[in-house]
Structures are given as structure tokens and as C-alpha cells.
């Protein structure tokens, strides 16, 4: 079983390494991830939100609903932890 899972991990890693040959080079300023929407955030964050820290302004201002959803996830996790770890009462015998 351990040998089988090792083989599966090696095969999956081989496919993923084969997939990296289409990735842009590390630290390339013209990579597709940094051309689409992040220049807008960098240029307009002082005018829109007056916050020099761009990460904070995107987290709390431009994408505030994302943070709200994250809070919902944490609330659900806390509730489910409390429900799982609750000590169940034994049924009273009559």
C-alpha cells in the first residue's frame, strides 16, 4: 500500500513537472498574472481608498465581499467544531 501510494505520487509529480514547461519564468514582469487587473489596483489605490498598503486596500475595499465570505467560513468551522466535540448525554433509562 505504501509502495503504491509512492508510485502514484511520483507519477502525479512527473505530470505536473511536464506541465511547468509552459509556465512563465520566475520573476518575469510581463507574466500574464501581473498584466490583467493588478496594474489598476496599483495605480488607483491612493485615489480610491487613500491607503498606501495595496494588499490591505484590495482585501478590505475592492474585494470586501471576499473577506465577508471568509468570515462565514470561519464561523461555520467554529460551529461545526463545537458540535463535533460536544459530549453527548446518555439516554436516561426509565
Amino acid at each position: 500500500m505504501k509502495f503504491l501510494s509512492f508510485i502514484v505520487a511520483v507519477i502525479t509529480g512527473g505530470f505536473l513537472i511536464y506541465g511547468t514547461q509552459d509556465m512563465p519564468e520566475w520573476g518575469d514582469p510581463n507574466s500574464p498574472a501581473s498584466l490583467h487587473v493588478s496594474p489598476y489596483y496599483l495605480e488607483n489605490t491612493m485615489h480610491d481608498t487613500a491607503t498606501p498598503n495595496v494588499v490591505t486596500s484590495v482585501l478590505a475595499d475592492y474585494r470586501g465581499y471576499d473577506t465577508l465570505g471568509e468570515t462565514t467560513v470561519i464561523f461555520t468551522a467554529g460551529i461545526s467544531c463545537a458540535l463535533i466535540l460536544r459530549k453527548r448525554r446518555r439516554k436516561k433509562r426509565k
Binding site: Y41, V58, I74, A77
Partner: peptide
């Protein structure tokens, strides 16, 4: 800055899954 924001969310979600 955009991947940093998304991963900030992902770290907190990772810890809540760890708790459950």
C-alpha cells in the same frame, strides 16, 4: 498584490479546515 490577497484568505481557511 492580487495573489497575496487571495492567499491571505486561503491561509485562514486552511487553519479552519485543520481545526475541523
Amino acid at each position: 498584490p492580487l495573489p497575496h490577497v487571495l492567499m491571505l484568505t486561503a491561509i485562514v481557511v486552511a487553519v479552519s479546515t485543520l481545526g475541523v
